[in-house]
Each structure stands twice: as C-alpha cells, then as structure tokens.
Amino acid sequence: MMDVRIYTLVHRELTGQLSEGEAQELMALKSQPHVMTLSKDVETIWNISKEYYPTQSWNTQMAKAAFMDRLREDRLLNTSTSQTSYLKYLLWGILLIVIAGMSYWIISEGSRSAEVQETNVVEEIQFASLSDDTKLWIEPGGVVEEVEYRQVKLNGAAIFDVSRDETSPFRIDMGQGVMAEVLGTSFKAISAHEGRPGTISVRDGQVRLYVIQNKNASVYLNAGETGSIDPSTMAVERKETKGSVVLSSELNFSFHNTPLEEAFPLLSQYFGVEFDLSQASLLGCTFSSPLVQKTTLEATLRNIETAYEGLSIQEMGRSTYRVEGKCTKE
C-alpha cells in the first residue's frame, strides 16, 4: 500500500492539496531515486493529460438539424395545445356540471358522508424523489406538489436534499407568498399557514427565503441557521438552529430486538436522513427500545452507540450519517 501513499502525495502536490506534514513526508520520500522518478513521470502525465480531448468529430451541422427539428416539434405541440384548449375547456365545463349534479344528488340523499380527502396527503413520513433527482422526506400531513421542473408547492413540513444545478434554481412555494430558492442544498421547510410563518432550517449550503410581494422581506440562511418569515406582518427572524435538523421529533415508534440492518433504514424513514452503512458490520446484532417517544434522532443514535461500543455514528452533512465499526457487544 506504500505505492498508494506515494501516488496520493504526488497527486496532492500537483493539485495543491498537500498539507505541511505531507509536504515533509513527500520530500523525505523523494530522497529515494525510485520515488523521484515516479514523481517526475506522474508530473509529466498530469501536465500532458490536461490536453486530452476526444478525437471524435461531433458533426455540429447534423446535430443542429436534429436540434432544430426538436424545437419545431415542441413549438407545434404548444400551438396545437393552445388551439385545442377551447374545446378542452368546453368538455371540462360539461364534466364539472355533471359531477356537481351527481354530488348534489349524493349529498341530498344522505346515502354517504361527503367527507373530502386529499389523496396525496401522506399519513407517515414518506420519501420521494423529483424529476431533477432532488430527494425529499415529507412529514405526516404534508403535501408536496411538483408544479414544474425544479419548482414545488409545499403544504406542511418536509426535508429537501436538492440536486445542484447552477443553471436552474430550485424554488419552493411555501404558501401565502413565502418562497424559498436554492441551487443545491439540504434543509427542512415548513409552509406558512394561518398565522404560522414559513420556516427554513438549513443543514448544508445556503437558502434564500423571501416573500414575493415584498422584496424587503428576504433573508439568506446558511448551514446551522433557521429563519422564518411571517407573511402577515412581513417579520423576518433568523437564529441558530438548536439540535439536528430532522423531521418531527414527536414520533412514536419502538424497536423490539430489531436487527440493526433493519433499524437504520427505519430511522432513515422516520427522520428523513440517510445512513452510509458501507463501513459497518451489523450482522447478527439487534436493537431494542421499548417506545422511542418524543425522541430526537441524536438521542436514538447515542443509544445505539451505547449499546454497541464498537460502532460509531457520525454526521457527514447533507442529511447523511456514516456508521462505522463492528457491532460486537462488550
């Protein structure tokens, strides 16, 4: 493995990532002719490889022709959509009248309750991923609607892990004119609702929280900060986040001799975080916690660490925890 170390040090030197200690280590290694030769070779390869480009001809003209066809198809689609829209409105109108009539008949007959349910309101924490690869965990009672590419409407609470795309900001309509805008980051958002301010707690990156109607009601939030805007008073609040940013900490769940390999995915689901288990050996170990009620993720993870001294669980940022070690009981 010594070679790996030498190559790493030489590469770190070439890319300006060498620490002071590593610089001394490399200098000592270079006193050996073999290492000096290796270093020179790698430097030559590194410098020349910068010019590497595929020799393939990309045929711009043919590609452009195909691209322009695609634009034309798109335009035709939009045109045809607008031409048929009148007919569509008419049909929808007729359909609505029929539905309204049937509803009235059902209610007046009293044959059944007319309780309306939103089908997309989640009953338990639910994981979803959007078309741009953004991941989200929605708290019970919450609804997230993907309005268009990289734009969603939130009612309730959810944790977002937004995929980075500098060409296209990700926007969340949090209700009552409160908006959040990001390029790629991880945070928890709670929508504004009946006097409740729209709130953001940032785990990683930066989020802009603002109100559409009032440019002054705007705040940039960084990792570790929680901010809110009350749409009725335009009051902006910004403070340090207390504890970890997870979904509801008032969940009821319990573990009874649950294999650790199953417990971590469950915790992932409950709290809207991810666990990297690739460095952990969990086989044959179980975890019991009679009723983990109103607990925090941190407390639960510390309980697991206490139960298994060989395991260490560390927060790596961006909603991810790394579990390392072997779960042998002391």
Binding site: D3, Y7, H11, L38, I45, S49
Partner: peptide, 11 residues
C-alpha cells in the same frame, strides 16, 4: 485509491 490507481495504470 482511485486516483492512485489511475496514475499507476497511466504510468
């Protein structure tokens, strides 16, 4: 490891 591997193969 991957960078080292790449450089070693290239060399």
């Amino acid at each position: 490891n991957q960078i080292s591997k790449a450089l070693k193969i290239l060399r």
